[in-house]
């Protein structure tokens, strides 16, 4: 009786282990492809990426250095903040001059039709981040005396998104001693709200 149950469990587990081994590689590849696609959106064209760990927003996050012809063209930071419905992870692409090249959403739990609009690539909210210069724009939503246009009726999501970008910029400033003056100016720009 319990023999049948145990036997069933063993057979099923064995078959699953086999299936797991078969699909492990495609799964890993699918996840990597998704990330690569996102990185391609947020930084300029590149040949290869180098992954590293940085501290972003107080937690250890991934950062991808994009390199083309031996030169660094940008850094993509995974920046996580607390949104309206849960975790919000934004991939922030920053070029060596300290400007935001573009952003993309990796993980979001926001309300469909409201905060989830942050995933719409052609929306006003998203396009305002392209080429944003933190030395010129104040990184806060308009309601908080900043320069960022929030999504209608989704102030909390917009604030979380803005904070994610801000954290990425701080992480960039903290890690790039070679970009010296540029990084200094950006940090001052953020602090001079």
């Amino acid at each position: 009786m319990t023999l049948v149950l145990t036997l069933t469990c063993l057979v099923c587990s064995a078959l699953l282990a086999f299936a797991h081994a078969l699909t492990e590689e495609p799964i890993r590849k699918a996840a990597a492809d998704k990330l690569d696609r996102a990185i391609a959106v947020v930084v300029p064209a590149f040949d290869s990426t180098e992954a590293m760990k940085v501290e972003c927003g107080g937690t250890e996050s991934n950062c991808y250095k994009a390199v083309k012809d031996g030169e660094t063209v940008g850094y993509a930071f995974e920046s996580t903040t607390s949104g309206f419905g849960g975790m919000l992870t934004v991939l922030v692409g920053i070029t060596p001059d300290g400007k935001v090249y573009n952003t993309d959403v990796l993980v979001n739990n926001e309300t469909p039709g409201l905060g989830a609009k942050c995933t719409e690539k052609n929306s006003l909210f998203r396009t305002q981040w392209e080429g944003l210069d933190p030395a010129v724009k104040i990184l806060a939503v308009k309601q908080d005396n900043g320069d960022i246009d929030a999504i209608t009726a989704s102030t909390i999501t917009s604030r979380a998104y803005t904070l994610a970008v801000s954290n990425a910029l701080s992480a960039f400033a903290a890690m790039a001693p070679e970009t010296g003056e540029q990084a200094q100016n950006n940090e001052e720009g953020i602090e001079n709200e």
Partner: peptide, 16 residues
Amino acid sequence: VIIASFVTLLQFMMQA
């Protein structure tokens, strides 16, 4: 257990 196995199989396939 049988149903759970097929569901897990489905999970692998969809994830990949």
